[in-house]
Design a protein around this nucleic acid. Structure first.
Lengths: 250, 250
DNA sequence: GCGGTCAAGTTGTCAATACAACTTTGCGCG
DNA sequence: CGCGCAAAGTTGTATTGACAACTTGACCGC
């Protein structure tokens, strides 16, 4: 299975995906080396810089580590954040995900709405969905997706697939960043009903904005949960102390 | 001032530093373009791929944004994270910080305690402090600092200086990462008193663990706040890039 | 068996070149 | 004046090629 030269997806991205899939399929084990850059270049009939672009991408995703003179190694699965959802990273939640069910709670519909920081009302597709674990509702989300950025989204099945995968595969877009703010709120009637709890129950509300390139208003999301049902946790790293630290000789 | 070809520092890193310094010196303004890749290559007598490596680095640091066909733009200064506290870096918070007061609410004392994931009880220094803005309490924090990692910490003045600066200057340590988990809780008597609210009031509780090198139990922190007094927000980036926390009183 | 050296292999840096895809600007026409 | 088109400019992708800096393994000598 070679790379598709005709695809609009750049070769280096196709290769990154391929390597990533090979890792997930167990072809390359954690702590072991993937084929060398020259081997990959030869095998896929592409240039070594193209291979490097692909491995660059995966290094930045924390999936690979390059050791000069030695090779490129598979790293343990990182605790990465999926910006589309609150799927956490703890081992406990991973277990819960096996029994997780995500369902739409209303038919997606268009509405014209203006978010803070955006002057004019714009068209959004409003999507409501709920995540349950073992039939206990743990998350209730409302998403507003810009119809300018994601045209004809309602034509796709939003219920049974990952929204991030859909947006990546259909629109070739990935979020560049997200802003989110935490609130403690009291459940209103709709929220209480969706989460199967009493009106007025204290909830964690997370308001999140996903940015795609320069578009700051592509996707807004409101997520509410009971923190004794859903553990919202994350790992933080200091800024500017990442894999790209400048090493100065003494 | 050209790049030093004889330096052991790669050209692309020298250029990245140069561009970064030019930005900080005001030579390139936020939202304005830096010279094009070809211009920089010509000016510094280097190849365009070398320029791209430099701008790649700065793009990944969030300092630059490249727009195809248009140019490379300076981004607003990023919000860097202070893992020790919820104090952020935004201009709005900077204003609030002028009126922010941090005080110890109890004399730091030692206690032997065992945190989850740690088998044996260890000695920690327990520090309680409260942050007020305009005399309104907005944050109540309890910190447990390992006496093994930070010996004789109580000998230092913990009230009137940044804890992160103290630990950096006295112990030469900086946190490598932090795990945090969010809970909605009801205020107990102590919390209600410190935050000047009623017992039972719903609060946001953030439990945070700072890691120093391989030490996962160096510092534990519990932070509680009312989200209508203190806005807990953050900017997330995909995958393993640096996480940014920005927090401000409302 | 251990230590040192060297060759082969691998990643890191850098270059010139080319074309694609996009943005911006200027000019001409209605 | 506004619109459309073309040219110029810019970033994005990809190639071939070269050398530097490092790692690893094999071989040899003690």
């Amino acid at each position: 299975m070679m790379l598709n030269q005709q695809s609009p997806i750049p070769l280096y991205r196709q290769l990154a995906t391929r390597i990533s899939e090979d890792i997930e399929a167990g072809l390359h084990r954690v702590s072991e080396k993937i084929p060398s850059e020259n081997e990959l270049a030869q095998h896929f009939s592409i240039g070594r810089p193209t291979v490097r672009q692909a491995t660059d991408l995966l290094v930045r995703q924390g999936k690979l580590e390059r050791r000069r003179g030695s090779g490129t190694y598979v790293l343990p699965p990182t605790q990465s954040i999926d910006l589309f959802s609150l799927a956490g990273t703890s081992a406990a939640l991973r277990k819960s995900e096996l029994n997780a069910r995500l369902e739409l709670t209303a038919t997606p519909k268009r509405e014209k709405i203006s978010f803070e920081g955006s002057e004019l009302p714009s068209d959004y597709l409003r999507v409501e969905r709920r995540t349950s674990v073992d039939d206990t509702p743990v998350l209730y989300e409302t998403l507003w997706l810009s119809t300018d950025v994601f045209p004809d989204l309602e034509k796709h099945n939003l219920a049974n697939q990952s929204l991030s995968a859909l947006i990546r595969d259909v629109y070739f877009l990935e979020p560049s960043s997200a802003d989110q703010t935490f609130f403690v709120i009291c459940a209103d009637d709709a929220q209480a009903k969706q989460l199967d709890t009493k009106t007025g129950t204290p909830l964690l509300r997370v308001y999140r904005q996903l940015h795609f390139g320069n578009n700051k208003h592509a996707l807004h999301a409101e997520i509410v949960c009971l923190t004794d049902r859903f553990e919202f946790s994350q790992t933080l790293f200091p800024a500017n102390a990442a894999q790209d630290t400048m090493n100065q000789p003494v």
